[in-house]
């Protein structure tokens, strides 16, 4: 088929490819490109989401936001989340995978236990942790009191200086299972011969892990880091369902601020400007990852 002479117009092969491509391209255009363009268009207007007409105000929404401490606070929170998501669940997931890979008894049960929280919907996770973090008689405070650490118990979700760490604790419990699963699968795919060779050469288990296993886990690591970065940028549900961005904006991230401004205050234009800012910031953070992954795919296809 590939050697068929090209006729005037498109060949059958090209038409077939175009047919198969039409749906994904249409879906991409309708559900991805159109909303982005539409959001940018909205961000240049003053509109409450209800009125029949919008008022064009140019870039005013962007200037107003750039002068608001509330906006910068949310940006900083997103950056904190990015750092946390790259380090926290990734490191803990790797640790759990490495420990379980040593061949512990009850491995199957632990595998389920570690992964189970990741299967719970965000709203349910929020409900669970609202009770765990109840500051007087919640599970965490009670546990700390029982082991003599009661004086270190905090107003977990009510103290502006503590709330973000508390939310990160909940997310660590919730999402580590994903990193664990990817790393565990990666470890199990490492050829036994390599580890055996290292052992025969006299490598300690510590050396064997860092010099042999960890470098070979790079594909798994890059997947976990990339998805963690994306999760940090699009963070919404767990924060909204647990604190709604409070107390007094302390735990707010850009996505929750956007939701509050849009539907809590009827300012669709300004909320759209927040979305555009979020898209740009997420682009800066995530584009290098996408470029790297594209190169890897191109390299592997070339191989």
């Amino acid at each position: 088929m590939a050697h068929m002479p090209a006729k005037a117009g498109w060949s059958r092969t090209t038409l077939t490819f175009a047919g198969f491509l039409a749906l994904p391209v249409a879906l991409f255009a309708v559900f991805f490109l159109y909303p982005i363009v539409s959001t940018f268009y909205l961000s240049l207007h003053d509109w409450d989401g209800v009125a029949q007409n919008m008022r064009f105000i140019g870039l005013r929404n962007y200037w107003v936001l750039s002068a608001q401490p509330r906006f910068y606070h949310a940006v900083l929170n997103n950056i904190s989340w990015l750092v946390f998501m790259l380090l926290g669940p990734t490191a803990l997931g790797l640790l759990l995978a490495a420990v379980l890979d040593r061949g512990l008894r009850g491995e199957r049960a632990f595998r389920i236990i570690f992964f189970l929280p990741f299967t719970i919907p965000a709203v349910a996770v929020a409900a669970i942790w609202r009770w765990v973090y109840e500051p007087s008689n919640g599970l965490l405070t009670t546990l700390m009191r029982n082991v003599g650490l009661g004086e270190f118990a905090q107003n977990w979700l009510g103290d502006p200086g503590v709330v973000n760490f508390a939310l990160m604790g909940a997310v660590l419990w919730w999402t580590t299972g994903f990193a664990f699963l990817v790393f565990f699968a990666g470890l199990r795919n490492i050829p036994v011969e390599l580890l055996e060779a290292a052992r025969i050469e006299g490598a300690t288990p510590w050396q064997s892990f860092w010099r042999v296993s960890f470098p070979l886990l790079w594909p798994s690591t890059i997947i976990v880091l990339g998805i963690s970065a994306i999760d940090a940028m699009r963070l919404f549900d767990i924060v909204w369902a647990t604190t709604s961005g409070g107390p007094a904006y302390a735990s707010e991230v850009l996505a929750t601020q956007m939701y509050d401004v849009a539907f809590g205050r009827f300012e669709m234009g300004r909320a759209s400007a927040i979305s555009v800012y979020l898209l740009l910031i997420a682009g800066v953070v995530i584009m290098p990852y996408i470029a790297y992954m594209s190169r890897r795919v191109a390299d592997s296809e070339a191989d």
Partner: peptide, 20 residues
């Protein structure tokens, strides 16, 4: 009450019920 800002209103209502 101490730590009021970390509670939902139903959790605080429970504190009244529990004589706290």
């Amino acid at each position: 009450a101490k730590n009021w800002s970390g509670k939902t209103w139903t959790q605080t209502a429970d504190d009244v019920v529990n004589n706290n």
